[in-house]
Amino acid sequence: MAVLTPRRLNYPFTPEQVGGLRAGQFVLVSGVVYTARDRLHKFLFEGGKSPADLKNGALYHCGPVVVRKDGHWQVRAAGPTTSLREEPYLPRIIKDHGVRVVIGKGSMGKVTEEACAAGGCVYLHAVGGAAQVLADKVVAVQNVFLGKEFGLTEAMWVLELKDFPAIVAIDTHGRSLLRRVQNGSQRALRKLMDAPERFVP
């Protein structure tokens, strides 16, 4: 990890800060982020009023394991969920709410590349399944919205992060690390398809 040089990204995520990032770079995110999953995306997409101001903010695709202890919320596990499911909703949400950072995991297509370019937004890729390492980067649970309506997993949690590690997967120019990887794997796949083997039982 030490070999990849990190760039710091601190809330509020200004256009200047975010615009300086390039696909493939390693970042450490600090400050407030809002968790957002399937139900919240659908809700915002359909014109629902956001309980928090998302301008220059970050959405984190995550459904944390949260328990109530001594009157406080405690995050027990909090890694990213697959972002692709939210792709149909994202362009409108980025545009309408001025979201500048989306944190999640997994491939995203042309729709997100274009939305990032148009809205000056970046898509950051976190390590899927690393729920403990990433829960440690949550220094405070500031609030929770829509918990009753959507359930605790799908609620909008307001989390304060410190040095949350991620890779810039899509930058504000719409350039995508994921597309680069995919183009390479498609080329390799064609070669492997052309190299049959006779498996004799």
Partner: peptide, 25 residues
């Protein structure tokens, strides 16, 4: 390598913290 280092650190932490490896149980 960074991804795998993070994953292995996570495996260790989950055991120590007695908490789910991944939030999607």
């Amino acid at each position: 390598r960074w991804v795998l280092e993070t994953i292995l650190e996570n495996v260790q932490k989950a055991r120590e913290n007695d908490a789910p490896l991944c939030q999607d149980t």
